[in-house]
Design a protein around this nucleic acid. Sequence first.
DNA 1: AAACTTCAAGAAATCGATATCTATTGCTTA
DNA 2: TAAGCAATAGATATCGATTTCTTGAAGTTT
Lengths: 354, 354
Amino acid sequence: MKQKKRLATLADVAKAAGVSRATASRVLSGSTYPVSQELRERILAAAEALNYRPNALARGLKNDSRSVIGVVVPSISNPFYSELIEGIKDIAFEEQIVVLLAPTDGRLHREEQLIDTLIQQRVQGIAVALASGAAEMSQALRKSGVHVVVFDEQFDEQQNEVPGDCVAVDYREGARAAAEFLIALGHRRIGFVTAPLSRVNRRQILEGYRKAHAEAGLTVAEELIRVAESEYQYGRHVYELDVGGQLTEKLLDLARPPTAIMTNNDLMALGVLQKLYERKIRIPEEMSVVGFDDIAIARMTSPPLTTVRVPKYEMGRWVAEMLLRRFRSEEPLTPVVMKVKPELIVRATTAPPA
Amino acid sequence: MKQKKRLATLADVAKAAGVSRATASRVLSGSTYPVSQELRERILAAAEALNYRPNALARGLKNDSRSVIGVVVPSISNPFYSELIEGIKDIAFEEQIVVLLAPTDGRLHREEQLIDTLIQQRVQGIAVALASGAAEMSQALRKSGVHVVVFDEQFDEQQNEVPGDCVAVDYREGARAAAEFLIALGHRRIGFVTAPLSRVNRRQILEGYRKAHAEAGLTVAEELIRVAESEYQYGRHVYELDVGGQLTEKLLDLARPPTAIMTNNDLMALGVLQKLYERKIRIPEEMSVVGFDDIAIARMTSPPLTTVRVPKYEMGRWVAEMLLRRFRSEEPLTPVVMKVKPELIVRATTAPPA
DNA sequence: AAACTTCAAGAAATCGATATCTATTGCTTA
DNA sequence: TAAGCAATAGATATCGATTTCTTGAAGTTT
């Protein structure tokens, strides 16, 4: 009965105002080209009356730019990424840029697929928390001519050549500081609970843990290092919450359980805290716990979680700004690597061992 | 030095393969139009060699459809919304549809602005957690001919006419059940801590709280109802976490403090728990706490949080499916209102009063 | 063998907005 | 007064892909 609605086009507006499309476009796209006051008003009135909405597809096709950036992350239910996206979004919003979301659910092969989709959508730039090999992926991306900023992951420092812009966190140093702190408190058996070591950053956290021990002249008992077995697949669930508890159980059941537990992120730490509560182990008197990331809720646990703060929101802003920088300059720029130093936040889950 | 890279176009592929654009398009867009095996292979090979990526803008312009849906939510750092978006995304992914994110940061006026942006981007459909008047907004949207599904909010039941598709939660009933449970446990002074009542759903939760009291023949002491003063603005921070604690403090400082506290969402409840921990008030012995939503971390608090479960992930799927349904049918469909009934999840933050 | 159908390819119009090129008017300047 | 120059408007080509319209060749039917 009712026929399909069509939005008014520029041609409709031009006709209604009795002018050419060119003139209508000049007024409605905010061009600097001079248009007489009279026509200007007629066009604006017609656009208003027809409820005109410029077609961003047509605009983008003509200009080859779209005011859209893509964000590739493992999961948005993970507060680490959602806080980071807040930062990206705030910068994007100021620039009238919208954000296309591309969550991989932690599945590596989806990364490539989603990046491909984003390229097809002709996004202006891509921010990606790269899980697969950063260097190669970035190469492939570069071939497509899309601007890219990689974050969370960092490029392999071995190869001198830096393949692209990057906001990297010094996870190793953050973990080293955390472990050093626990050692200074007097802990000698520190458990380490981590998600699978498929991502570089997780490996770096473990390295930091080992480094602190080495520096203190301690040897690490390998039984204290517990790595989750299967790669997570996000989506419906936040796997860390359960895995943290499961791995904690294994540590507690050791003949000589640790007196402190470190984790590779705060969600894992939540699982740890929960398991300790369940087992009626007092925190921090009987067990110290240190998380990583400092997600928003870390300060709301009981007791508040000692953790290593990664400035996620700020990182998001930096990522977006680096993309903007590329959009704006015609010249090819030298790749920038921004190294973020995390900071140990001591709250109430840490104390000297009993 | 290096000149600006351009992605290969269909014309480039056609030329390389020595065919017309039409033929190339038929092969590369998966049309059913017959093309000889020989040309087909030549075209595919050329596309591969040139690293051809179809331009979704051009395609969308021609087809007037984009394989993109927009999602308007207050914040993605709020797990309620991020879990819901997971559901939307999972359905969208199956259909090769990408998600454009439009977070309002809780600012009402941004809602309109973002919806406008989405329309300009010619998204195929919009899922919106409406904060401003659902009915009018939906009217405005309908005028633009974009498919819309409203969730979280529900349409005013007074007006018989249902303006559009909607996935609504029966917040009133959920809150009623929670309050009834506390009353049955023996609580007579139940505090209520809530975000500003600007959103319909928050008002409904309060109504449910009152209703349970009325049904039990109890009168509510108004001093027990604490409403946060200023509307939240998300973005960088998750305000509920702090506000929950602040309002709790006011309740604790009453001459006759409550023996239980209900909240309008789990984040608020986290703030409550934290404040109680800080004040060394034992949970649930000295104070019961009930949240709302059942976000992923609710079961990881110490003790695990009693709350009212809203099936966020499933709701996300339903929202996406309702959108797909509209995309597919040419006929105008009767609006569907899906009413979701929340479920009380009793964990360990509730017990009879001391 | 004339007429008809089928198959496969190319030519060209189209989607909506923008930018370049042209054309007109009125005004200034040598 | 002819030439030169703003200022402003319209005509038209363009972005990249799809789709309708045509065309030509090959094969069928009576």
